[in-house]
């Protein structure tokens, strides 16, 4: 589904990603872990198509297309979704209106009929129930005045409505209390399917107790330095990121 080869990216002349290689197959859940400043969020933003980053080398294929050639909106229509670490607030535009517009843009690109307000509302209600969000959120302006946890849950609601092929969750667990973490994880787990894949970008392995990944990658200084099964998370938990750094320095 996703194939990243030797991806280099920089922002304002500073190289942040220094040769990422990663393959994600349909049905898989990958976790990308790493210390602050290792490039995790940059990778997520680069994949979503943020134009602040300059791609200096490498390639990314997603569903047999050259992802890097596509503008952000076309990546989304193709089925890529980024749950933001810091979702923005959009005053004056209700959640329902925003999501209906988004879903219809995606449907149009797949030659599917647009949903009218009634049909969309039915769908939205189902999804709100799925991710345990108060139905009144539908009418509230997108993320405006939401708590940190509410914003993250709202990202998961968008994920549930838009049903992407690949979801990248950027630090979705940070700032969540244990109940919110459970609700967010339940939502993600319910959306798992053989056709879809998920990349969890996280600093802590707390989230991995709720969403069990197939593969864990450790990103340090812009490159994936270790990949392994879920036991890698335990090792990181025990020893911290330093042991990997030390391994890297050792011959």
């Amino acid at each position: 589904m996703l194939e990243i080869r030797n991806l280099h990216a920089s922002v304002e002349g500073n190289e942040i990603l220094k040769g990422i290689n990663l393959t994600v197959k349909a049905g898989e859940v990958h976790a990308i872990m790493g210390p602050n400043g290792s490039g995790k969020s940059t990778l997520a933003q680069v994949l979503a198509g943020h134009d602040a980053y300059e791609i200096t080398a490498g390639s990314v294929r997603f569903l047999d297309q050259d992802l890097l050639e596509l503008p952000a909106e076309e990546r989304a229509r193709l089925g890529l979704f980024l749950a933001f670490q810091y979702p923005v607030e959009i005053p004056g535009i209700s959640n329902a209106y925003f999501l209906q517009a988004a879903l219809n843009e995606i449907r149009k690109s797949h030659n599917l009929p647009e949903l009218d307000a009634m049909d969309f509302r039915e769908l939205l209600n189902d999804k709100m129930e799925l991710v345990a969000i108060d139905p009144r959120f539908a009418e509230r302006p997108v993320n405006e005045g939401f708590s940190g946890g509410e914003k993250k849950r709202n990202e998961i609601l968008q994920l549930a409505v838009l049903e992407p092929r690949l979801a990248i969750l950027d630090e979705t667990d940070s700032g969540l209390d244990i109940d919110a973490l459970r609700i967010v994880s339940d939502g993600v787990n319910k959306l798992r399917s053989p056709e879809r894949a998920t990349i969890l970008v996280t600093h802590y392995n707390r989230l991995l107790n709720y969403i069990v990944p197939d593969v864990i990658h450790v990103l340090v200084n812009g490159a994936i330095v270790r990949s392994g099964g879920k036991e890698l998370a335990l090792e990181l938990e025990e020893k911290g990121y330093d042991f990997i750094r030390e391994e890297l320095v050792a011959p």
Partner: peptide, 14 residues
Amino acid sequence: VIFYFRSRGMNEAM
């Protein structure tokens, strides 16, 4: 904010 819209499938004009 515009990037947020684009990441949800809507183009810049929209």
